[in-house]
């Protein structure tokens, strides 16, 4: 099964699900998610040939959105290459379903930094078809929970959508700043240690050698004295 086909099936399934949801909960949960495949969807996977990761993950509507909230749907691209990163694409619609142009869509990642926080990724303004996208290259591999939130639509409260990004390509990882000559520094003490040892041996030789010479000299003389 090709990757495209699988994605298509998944997309259709999700569309079906959202339709059902919309029917059942009309007016109660207007911030539902509609899927739209951004251009990047057509990007081929990285040539490394890793198994195609599921580009689309479970998306869910915001739990508690206002009745007149804008409709937002979010999609994360499945593949990326540094330094560009993954495309996070959202499409925004007004509460009655028309594409909203000129809305500000802000993208966050849910992180755990001394508590759960929403880290600002970037924001973009939606075009005439209600599409807004940003490029994100995460700092670490693994799954990232992404939130898209729209503001600036007339007579609509902010709406949001969530998705998960499975990142395999990451930004340059943190590396400690170590001066290049530190390896040389680490070798120096051994050389110095040898010199110190040599000095101690020399002092010991000067003291003990002299003492031995003097004591022996005295003995030899005594022996000589006896012989004489």
């Amino acid at each position: 099964m090709t990757r495209g086909l699988r994605v298509l099936i998944a997309v259709l399934a999700l569309v079906a699900a959202t339709v059902v949801l919309q029917l059942d909960l009309r007016g109660l949960l207007p911030g539902q998610v509609r899927l739209e495949a951004p251009n990047t969807m057509l990007m081929s996977p990285p040539s490394s040939g890793q198994g195609a990761p599921g580009g689309v993950s479970a998306q869910r509507p915001a739990a508690a959105a206002a009745p007149n909230a804008a409709r937002v749907q979010l999609r994360t691209s499945a593949a990326a290459s540094a330094p560009d990163g993954y495309v996070l694409a959202a499409s925004v619609a007004t509460p009655d379903g028309r594409p909203a142009a000129g809305a500000t869509v802000t993208f966050y990642e849910v992180v755990d930094l001394l508590g759960s926080r929403e880290m600002l990724i970037d924001s973009a303004t939606s075009d005439g078809r209600g599409n807004a996208s940003v490029v994100y290259l995460p700092a670490r591999a693994g799954s990232h929970e992404i939130v898209a939130r729209s503001t600036g639509i007339a007579k609509a409260a902010s709406g949001e959508a969530r998705s998960t990004l499975e990142a395999t390509v990451t930004a340059k990882a943190y590396a400690p700043e170590t001066p290049s000559i530190s390896a040389f520094y680490n070798a120096v003490p051994y050389g110095v240690g040898l010199v110190v040892l040599a000095v101690w041996l020399l002092i010991a030789f000067a003291l003990l050698g002299t003492a031995r010479g003097v004591v022996r000299g005295a003995r030899r003389e005594e022996e000589k004295g006896v012989i004489a």
Binding site: L113, M119, A139, A173
Partner: peptide, 21 residues
């Protein structure tokens, strides 16, 4: 702000942003 260079995130308690950005 306190941040983590590995996860590239920083927070001042209210806002949370990408540290490198």
């Amino acid at each position: 702000w306190i941040g983590d260079l590995v996860e590239d995130v920083a927070t001042n308690g209210t806002d949370t942003v990408r540290l490198s950005s």
